[in-house]
Nucleic acid binder design. Structure first.
Lengths: 124, 124
DNA sequence: ATTATTATTGACTATTCAGTCAAAAATAAT
DNA sequence: ATTATTTTTGACTGAATAGTCAATAATAAT
């Protein structure tokens, strides 16, 4: 009963995820998110609860999906910016790490960060 | 002529550096910096010009010093948070990378990030 | 001792921030 | 068609933000 959402949360979370990757977590404002998604703050808050809720939902989505760019981008931001202020995010990273531990995992992370910061590109 | 500084900029930059490591760049406010250093904003601005100037000075110092914790902490923050909004910082990282490129550099970066985020500790 | 120069002080500003909420709109269920 | 329920809307709030600046204090150079 009542109306249905006008937007697809999954689509919106992709937009939000890429925005966090571009600007960082603390570097992204809610006005930025409103602008990028076209969804007004009230709707965003009623769906995701808080800015942190938006990050967590986008991060979780990225872990259950195929796009490695999105996943690595959000992982880096989660590790460096968000984990210190959210035990839930810290636990999510822990879980991911426990599941994905390989001999070259550190090199993979380092590679992702070098790519993220633009110091190396594609093949390099 | 005129009075000399009451504080040692090098000491202050260490305090600022550790604060940036703890809270991130965008997560650190000038009130935080004032509190930690005991130096009022006017003096900080007349010495370092801007918040970005404070980061750059602390980062540069860390690259010319011995403390690896400080250096790696600021490198991570520089790569993930600051480089996207400062070409100067991006160049500093480039220069550092060109000079310190080794076969295991990516693993080193990944290791530093895992440590920073508390996912691994000391020996692990 | 005077003075020109520099540093300190901290109140102030204008802007941006995350988050709220009452009203309006839409619609699923009956 | 009515109604109960949900979503949307966007103006609003109080707090925090980076940065400024005129006044004051200190002092190095003369």
């Amino acid at each position: 009963m009542g109306r249905n959402k006008k937007f697809d949360p999954t689509v919106v979370l992709h937009d939000i995820g890429w925005l966090f990757i571009k600007n960082g977590y603390n570097g992204t404002s809610l006005d930025d998110i409103v602008k990028v998604t076209g969804i007004l703050r009230g709707s965003l808050y009623s769906t995701f609860g808080s800015k942190l809720g938006m990050f967590i939902a986008a991060f979780e989505l990225s872990l259950h999906e195929e796009d490695p760019q999105l996943k690595w981008g959000l992982l880096l931001i989660a590790m460096l910016e968000v984990a210190p202020q959210s035990t839930k995010v810290a636990q999510m990273i822990q879980t991911w790490y426990a599941t994905n531990q390989t001999p070259d995992i550190e090199a993979q992370i380092g590679h992702a960060l070098l790519r993220h910061s633009g110091i190396i590109t594609k093949g390099e």
